[in-house]
Design a protein around this nucleic acid. Sequence first.
DNA 1: TAGATTGTTAATCGATTAACAATC
DNA 2: TAGATTGTTAATCGATTAACAATC
Lengths: 212, 212
Amino acid sequence: MEKQRVSDAVIRRLPRYYRQLSQLEREGVLRISSGQLSRLMSLTASQIRHDLNCFGGFGQQGYGYSVKGLKSAIADILELGQQKHMIIIGAGNIGQALACYEGFPREGFYVHAIFDNNPRLIGKTVGRLQVSDIQELESYLAAEKVNIAVVATPGEFAQQTADRLTACGVRAIWNFAPIDVAAPNNVVVENVSLSDSLYALSYFMNQLDEQA
Amino acid sequence: MEKQRVSDAVIRRLPRYYRQLSQLEREGVLRISSGQLSRLMSLTASQIRHDLNCFGGFGQQGYGYSVKGLKSAIADILELGQQKHMIIIGAGNIGQALACYEGFPREGFYVHAIFDNNPRLIGKTVGRLQVSDIQELESYLAAEKVNIAVVATPGEFAQQTADRLTACGVRAIWNFAPIDVAAPNNVVVENVSLSDSLYALSYFMNQLDEQA
DNA sequence: TAGATTGTTAATCGATTAACAATC
DNA sequence: TAGATTGTTAATCGATTAACAATC
């Protein structure tokens, strides 16, 4: 009996569950039912149980879920326990912000280097790092194991940067440039596009105004 | 005949269409068929035609779509022509990066102020702005029309910040704090959570490795 | 006109929700 | 045991895809 592939929609809810459970843990909550969780997260209880049962039965009938237990089960699914090594290409606004963000190392995502092609930025200190010359990218990748590369270049350099990364064996790209980046099948790409999110928000806001 | 409500999934593809068409326009492409566009965007031609026809018939049989015409039709739907006034709460890494990002004003989204509660940051220059004291938030909002407020505070302040904003009549919140923020029904909230995106990418990467 | 491609309806597929037996 | 709540299957709903008539 082959385990059925879990849908993307479910996977993308897992981080939300994880965050909510972390929050509950901080608040000292020990156990929670799918019904209570559904109200906190604006989902249905049915969906929560259905989602979790894609991976296993983490609850207990008549009791609910242990906050701690469920949180660590989800951490296991997402493999948050394992250290992930990251580099950032592009030391502009976004690149620097991501390099300095403290939330990532807290969950095992470490930024080890940040590259740029701008001589004025090369050598500059960003958080605990110094900006490296982009020309050293290939030699760096030959020497160091990198799990995830962040593309934070201007749009016009995003695709060529992704190409250089995949040529060096990088298997996961987190792309913040305002251009969707393509890569071979054996590479995972997450195109973030902050402006898409902003445009959608703006559209929904306009809709609301028109109703009123 | 009441026009049927357009689904979220369609709305969230519009910015992607818009970006792709902008790219094609830069490349000097004048016309494009749904088939060609589908290959560029990894969608089906059918879906593209279906999506666009939620808003109107922008194409021409036997010809396809005018790149320029379709781009401006989508800009109209998203109301990108209208200026949007934004403020940012939280002048940390993310807040500063967003304040400085040049892509937003290019599409009519202007950041007019950035607030923080940290005395060391208040008064500091960020891009063309100076960081204001968060205590001035209410008086600022009483005096100025703000369409969208960006929450870029630490998680523990996100909800109370959102509450202050909605109390002052802000109708759209773009939240970057790692906590989903709640608001009344007449307020639109977009919870971004960059770490969710990173965790999902990391999961898909692990999946790929396990296959190989 | 012939060829191409849209607009639009119907068919399919997958995700969400409902229901309830299992069980703590 | 009785009450609560899960795990899991079936029903529903909505989104995507296929098909093709309309038409440029």
